[in-house]
C-alpha cells in the first residue's frame, strides 16, 4: 500500500468520524425547547445543532470521495 493510499484511507476514516460525530452532536444539541429569536432564527443550541448537521454532511462527502478514489 502506497503512502497516498494510506493517506486517503485515513481521510476516509476521518470523514466517517466527522459524519458520526456530526450526527451525534446534531441530535444532542437539538432541543425540545429551543429559545429562538425570530428575526434571525439563531440560538446557541440551534447553531450548534445546525453546524453539527453541516459537519456530518461534509464528513459523509469526504468519506465517500476518499473511498471512491481508493478503489478507482
Amino acid at each position: 500500500m502506497t503512502t497516498q493510499q494510506l493517506t486517503i484511507l485515513l481521510m476516509a476514516a476521518a470523514g466517517a468520524g466527522l459524519f458520526f460525530a456530526g450526527r451525534y452532536f446534531a441530535k444532542k444539541f437539538s432541543s425540545e425547547e429551543p429559545t429562538f429569536i425570530p428575526a434571525t432564527m439563531v440560538t446557541a443550541r440551534g447553531i450548534a445543532s445546525y453546524v453539527s448537521t453541516v459537519a456530518s454532511w461534509a464528513g459523509a462527502l469526504l468519506a465517500a470521495v476518499c473511498v471512491f478514489l481508493f478503489f478507482s
Binding site: 502506497t2 503512502t3 497516498q4 493517506t7 486517503i8 481521510m11 476521518a14 470523514g15 466527522l18 445546525y50 448537521t53 453541516v54 459537519a55 454532511w57 461534509a58 464528513g59 462527502l61 469526504l62 470521495v65 476518499c66
Partner: peptide, 27 residues
C-alpha cells in the same frame, strides 16, 4: 499524481469545507 500526505490532507479539508458550505444550502 502522488502528492504529499500534507497536500492530500489539505485537499481533503478544503473538500470538506466546500461540501459543508453546499450542505448549508441544501439541508
Amino acid at each position: 499524481n502522488g502528492a504529499s500526505t500534507g497536500t492530500l490532507f489539505k485537499d481533503g479539508a478544503i473538500l470538506a469545507k466546500d461540501g459543508a458550505l453546499a450542505a448549508v444550502t441544501f439541508i
